[in-house]
C-alpha cells in the first residue's frame, strides 16, 4: 500500500500542478502605449475607487494550492465508528468503537482507538462434536485498544453529480496495541487506510479499512491472524473552528 502511494508520488510530474492549478495561459503584460492604465480613478478603464478596488481584488483573488478550507493541525478529533469485522479464524461480525486523534500537523496525527466486537463461529460446534471436546473459546467479547500514527499525505476534493464540492483526506495509519480476549496474547499491530470526508469545519465522515495483526492460541496451537475491518465513523473536530 505504501509502495503504491510512493509510486504515485514519484510518477506525478511537478509540472502537472501548473497544468491543473496554476495560472493557465497568462496574457502578455499590456504595454502602457497599447492599453490605458486600469484601476486608476479618473483614467480610462477605471471602474471603482482604489480602496474599494483593493477590497474587491482581495475577494476575487484565486486561492493558492497551499490554502486549505479544513485545517487539522493542532486540533482534536473524536470519532464514533462501526462496521464489519472479518475475523481470520472465526466468522465475521460487527465492530463498534471510538477514537481520539490529535493532529500535530496537517499531515501527522496520533490516534488511540478502542473497539468492541463479539467472537462468532459457525464451524466450532462441528469441530467440537467431531473431536468430542470443547474448544474452550471462552468469553465472546473482544476488546481492542490500539495507538496509531496517522499520516495523511493526500488532500483532495471531489464532486458527486451537481452537488457541492467535498474536501477529503486520504490517510494511512499504523501502530501497536492489545487485543483483550481469552484467545489472544502478546502484542498486536494494526495498519490501515482511510478517507476522511469533511462535511463541515467541525464534522467529518470517516471510511476506514484496517488490518489487525496479532496472535491467538487455541488448544496449544498458535496462530498469527489477520483480521480485516471496514468501518464508517462520524467525527467531531475540536475546536470547532479551523
Amino acid at each position: 500500500m505504501i509502495a503504491a502511494l510512493a509510486l504515485v508520488l514519484a510518477l506525478v510530474q511537478p509540472g502537472d500542478k501548473a497544468k491543473a492549478c496554476g495560472p493557465a495561459t497568462a496574457p502578455a503584460p499590456a504595454t502602457a502605449s497599447a492599453e490605458p492604465p486600469v484601476g486608476v480613478p479618473g483614467q480610462p478603464g477605471e471602474c471603482v475607487d482604489k480602496t474599494l478596488q483593493e477590497q474587491l481584488l482581495a475577494k476575487r483573488r484565486h486561492r493558492l494550492t497551499k490554502d486549505r478550507l479544513f485545517v487539522k493541525a493542532l486540533r482534536h478529533e473524536l470519532t464514533l465508528y462501526g462496521g464489519y469485522y472479518v475475523s481470520d479464524l472465526f466468522d465475521s461480525t460487527f465492530v463498534l468503537g471510538g477514537a481520539y486523534t490529535f493532529f500535530m500537523s496537517e499531515n501527522f496525527g496520533t490516534e488511540i482507538s478502542v473497539s468492541w466486537s463479539r467472537l462468532r463461529t459457525s464451524v466450532a460446534d462441528t469441530i467440537e462434536q467431531a473431536n468430542a471436546f470443547d474448544l474452550q473459546l471462552g468469553n465472546d467479547d473482544v476488546i481492542r485498544v490500539f495507538g496509531s500514527l496517522a499520516w495523511s499525505p493526500l488532500y483532495g476534493k471531489l464532486r458527486l453529480v451537481a452537488a457541492s464540492i467535498w474536501r477529503y483526506d486520504l490517510y494511512f495509519l499504523a501502530g501497536p496495541g492489545v487485543v483483550v480476549d481469552p484467545l489472544s496474547f502478546g502484542a498486536a499491530g494494526n495498519f490501515g487506510i482511510g478517507v476522511r470526508v469533511f462535511l463541515h469545519r467541525a464534522v467529518a465522515l470517516r471510511f476506514e479499512v484496517r488490518d489487525y495483526l496479532y496472535r491467538q492460541e487455541i488448544l496449544d496451537e498458535d496462530f498469527t491472524v489477520n483480521d480485516l475491518s471496514f468501518t464508517t465513523g462520524l467525527s467531531v473536530l475540536l475546536p470547532t473552528r479551523n
Binding site: 506525478v12 502537472d16 471531489l158 458527486l160 453529480v161
Partner: peptide, 15 residues
C-alpha cells in the same frame, strides 16, 4: 460518477 483531485504535495496534484 466521481472525479477527484488529490494534492500530494504543494506542487503535485493527482487526478
Amino acid at each position: 460518477p466521481i472525479h477527484t483531485k488529490l494534492r500530494a504535495r504543494k506542487d503535485r496534484i493527482v487526478h
